[in-house]
Amino acid sequence: MRQIFFDTETTGLLAEGGDRIIEIGCVEMINRQLTGNNLHLYINPQRASHEDALRVHGLTEAFLSDKPLFAQIAPQLLEFLAGAELVIHNAPFDIGFVNAELKRLRRPPITDVVDNVLDTLLMARNMFPGKANSLDALCRRLEVDNSNRKLHGALLDAELLAEVYIRLTRGQDSLVMDDSGDSSGDSADFRVAAVDLRSFDLPVPQASEEELAAHEKVLLELDKTSGGKRVWMTEKTISA
Rank of each mutant, 00 (worst) to 15 (best):
K150L: 10
A194M: 12
N148Y: 11
P205L: 15
L78Y: 00
E211F: 06
N133V: 06
A194T: 14
Q46Y: 06
E16Y: 12
K217A: 15
V117C: 04
M233N: 07
T11S: 00
Q46G: 13
M123S: 15
L168C: 00
G25M: 11
G18D: 15
D157W: 04
K150M: 05
M1K: 09
I110D: 01
L102I: 02
N90T: 06
G227N: 09
P108C: 02
S49E: 05
D196Y: 04
V144S: 01
L160Y: 06
S65M: 10
L105R: 08
R107F: 09
D7W: 00
F128S: 01
M233D: 04
L39S: 02
A84G: 00
N37A: 12
H152N: 08
K131D: 13
S147I: 02
F200Q: 06
S184T: 15
E16F: 11
S239K: 12
E221D: 11
E61G: 01
F63Y: 15
E79D: 06
N38H: 14
F93H: 09
K131G: 05
P203Q: 05
P205D: 11
M29H: 04
I88Q: 00
G96L: 05
K236P: 08
L41N: 06
T234Q: 14
E209G: 10
D7Q: 13
L156F: 13
T169Y: 03
G25S: 05
P108W: 04
F190T: 10
D189F: 15
H215M: 15
G36H: 05
P92G: 05
R170P: 01
N126E: 13
M123H: 13
L13Q: 06
I30H: 04
P108I: 03
H40L: 07
K229Q: 13
F80L: 11
V218F: 11
V113F: 08
L212D: 08
S134W: 08
L81E: 03
A84C: 10
K150A: 14
H89Q: 03
R198F: 09
D189R: 12
I24E: 10
I95F: 06
I95R: 09
N116S: 11
I21K: 01
R47T: 09
Q3V: 11
A213F: 09
D7I: 02
R106L: 07
G12A: 02
E85F: 07
R104W: 04
P68H: 07
N37V: 08
E101C: 09
G130A: 14
D201Q: 15
F200E: 05
S239A: 13
T111Q: 08
L13N: 10
A154Q: 00
L122F: 07
P205I: 12
S239Q: 13
G25P: 05
N99I: 03
A154M: 01
D186A: 11
T234K: 04
E51V: 06
D223P: 00
K217F: 07
I238E: 13
R198P: 01
T8Y: 01
L39P: 04
R20Q: 15
T237P: 07
L168E: 09
A214L: 09
V192D: 03
